[in-house]
């Protein structure tokens, strides 16, 4: 009898736990401040679980392997938003469902990966170009030729991101050809140019892109702007460049997932993140930029005012990395293999 009572009590507990409002978030590791999660929990009484991934591809693989329906929102990069939408893994919402929708910086509403913002909102964005050690090279650094056709001082001392998407996108901008072009002459030119350029490169590395600049192993390197800020903080005499041909823009976004078990809570969370104060808190932690109007006021000034985060007014920001169609991607893969053969 006692045991029976115990079982009843247990099941009562279980159903109480079910009644507790929940939210499951899937995000890059170390990308959301714990205090902000606690603030959301305190404001709404919703119990938040945060799971982390270490790459967009790992997230996609997990969702496709059956984790869809478990998470409410995920925070992937730009091209991955498009892939999620194309593969039917994202849900849609209307602007009316997010009272703070109007806080989104208008330049990030009609983005190529989610035009009009029907499945995602901005989380953080930044630029990817390159930084140059000013002790080694004092000339102008306003062009991508620093990487692809470098001056003598930098030749053989360049680190390049070990990432097909960013390298081919920047190379295309340098040549002035569209990303994912299907024009064969342009693709051949891209291949030939990279074969020339690789002779000037010392190494490929993404995780190490900051460290090689700080240590002096590389005198110039492709790098994310926020990463360049950190390299400078660690004592490297580097200058981050905003090349005239354009940079790679990247943006991580909060995506409403299909089959979200707590869709309403997910929308409340997204709305919460669009509040300038909260967007500022994320930015102070992640050290990029928010894409939410008014967030600057609540952002750590050291991050807000860094030269890396403040491109000159007139500069060509560039473009997001495009997700190519299957045929063009096959050619891109071949070019990349040639490059690293």
């Amino acid at each position: 009898m006692k045991r029976l009572l115990g079982a009843v009590a247990l099941s009562a507990l279980a159903s109480a736990a079910q009644a507790q409002e929940e939210l499951k978030v899937y995000i890059f590791f170390e990308y959301i401040p714990q205090e902000l999660v606690e603030k959301f929990e305190a404001e709404t009484g919703i119990d938040v679980t945060v799971d982390t991934f270490d790459s967009n591809e790992a997230m996609l693989a997990a969702l496709k392997a059956g984790r869809l329906g478990e998470y409410d929102v995920a925070v992937p990069g730009d091209y991955m938003v498009e892939i999620l939408r194309n593969q039917g893994l994202a849900d849609t919402f209307t602007p009316e469902e997010l009272p703070n929708f109007g806080n989104i910086d208008p330049q990030w509403i009609d983005v190529p990966f989610d035009p009009g913002r029907t499945s995602s909102i901005p989380y953080q964005w930044g630029l990817t170009a390159f930084a140059v050690n000013r002790d080694v090279y004092q000339g102008p650094i306003d062009s991508l030729s620093i990487i692809f056709d470098p001056p003598e001082e930098l030749s053989g001392r360049i680190n390049v991101l070990d990432s097909q998407g960013e390298v081919l996108a920047l190379a295309s901008m340098y040549l002035g050809i569209p990303q994912c072009t299907q024009d064969r002459d342009q693709l051949r030119a891209l291949n030939d140019m990279l074969q020339e350029a690789r002779q000037h490169w010392a190494s490929f590395g993404s995780d190490t892109s900051k460290e090689v600049l700080v240590s002096g192993d590389a005198a110039a390197g492709m790098i994310y702007n926020g990463f360049a800020t950190k390299a400078r903080d660690e004592g490297a005499n580097i200058e981050y460049a905003f090349p005239k041909e354009g940079s790679v823009i990247w943006m991580d976004n909060v995506v409403l997932l299909r089959d979200a078990p707590n869709r309403d809570n997910a929308l409340r969370f997204m709305n919460f993140l669009l509040d300038p104060e909260n967007a500022g808190a994320v930015t102070s932690y992640a050290a990029y930029q928010a894409g939410v109007l008014g967030a600057e006021e609540f952002t750590d000034p050291a991050i807000r005012d860094s030269p890396e985060n403040n491109p000159p007014e007139s500069v060509n920001l560039g473009d997001f990395v495009m997700a190519c169609d299957e045929t063009t991607q096959a050619t891109y893969d071949a070019i990349w293999t040639n490059l690293k053969q």
Binding site: A202, G205, K340
Partner: peptide, 10 residues
Amino acid sequence: PDLLGGAKTF
């Protein structure tokens, strides 16, 4: 190869 060789070649 990645860390010491610079990942220049696969």
